[in-house]
């Protein structure tokens, strides 16, 4: 047992400086396409048409990006034709308009500032989002240091993190978990599937995202969103920072 301790110490501190400093290590994010201006409308049209999920939309010679739909297929990047410009950032989380709208004052719960207990429900994800959340516990991210804790039971949970498009069989368990959570509670939709179904839904068996079922308070785009993007979202939901773009 002492050996483990020594080995642990010998490894040194591997934890990211984020959020105090941006993490620059390569490979921490798959990146997202950036809105790009092309030579002409035809080229923009061609680039946008390569997107299989409709995340790109051309207007004139400019191509706009809907990050909520991007699945990082790189078809707009890796091709013989023109390519979108690409960003490697990860602070993507945002508050959906529905959550800021009438009747649901965002007013981030002051009680969430110090510690948030998170229940993760896999509602049909491909395994990537879940694995990225699992990475948050790895030494590189160590989410506990920021006051976030994973809990296995909704009874202790403040935040419901949902991954996956919400499959038919998971609708009821997901609702049951949400209802079993005490107030105040928040819902975070993690990943493109949870935002809109991605390549899986909507269909007879897979839904078109969490918002069909539960009021979503924070959205994290990405397929999967890298751990830092989820960490960013956690900071948004706990009221440490405001959302990304809006």
């Amino acid at each position: 047992m002492a050996g483990w301790f020594l080995k642990g110490v010998a490894l040194g501190v591997k934890t990211t400086k984020y959020p105090r400093r941006a993490e620059q290590a390569p490979g921490v994010s798959p990146g997202l396409p950036r809105p790009t201006r092309f030579l002409d409308a035809a080229q923009a049209q061609e680039v946008a048409s390569r997107c299989p999920t409709g995340a790109l939309s051309a207007s004139g010679s400019e191509v706009a990006v809907d990050a909520r739909k991007c699945i990082h297929c790189y078809r707009c990047l890796r091709s013989d034709g023109a390519a979108m410009s690409w960003s490697d950032d990860y602070d993507w989380a945002d508050v959906p308009e529905s959550a800021t709208g009438q009747g649901r004052p965002l007013g981030f719960e002051p009680r969430f500032r110090r510690s948030v207990n998170i229940l993760v429900v896999d509602a049909g994800d491909c395994g990537a989002c879940l694995n990225e959340i699992a990475q948050l516990a790895a030494p590189q991210y160590n989410l506990h240091r920021l006051g976030f804790f994973l809990t296995p039971t909704p009874r202790h949970a403040d935040l419901l993190m949902v991954v996956g498009p919400v499959t038919d069989a998971m609708r009821y368990p997901l609702l049951a978990a949400y209802e079993a959570m005490p107030e105040p509670k928040r819902v975070m939709a993690v990943g493109t599937c949870a935002l809109g179904g991605s390549v899986f839904g909507p269909s007879f068996i897979a839904g078109g995202g969490v918002a069909e079922l539960l009021p979503v308070d924070v959205e994290v785009p990405g397929n999967p969103p890298p751990p830092l993007a989820i960490l960013h979202a956690l900071r948004v939901v706990s009221g440490q920072i405001r959302g990304a773009r809006r």
């Binding site: 039971t153 909704p154 009874r155 998971m170 009821y172 368990p173 997901l174 049951a176 978990a177 209802e179 079993a180 005490p182 107030e183």
Partner: peptide
Amino acid sequence: LRRARQWDGGLH
């Protein structure tokens, strides 16, 4: 006070 069903893992 809120009375909730017992948490059974999400069974019907």
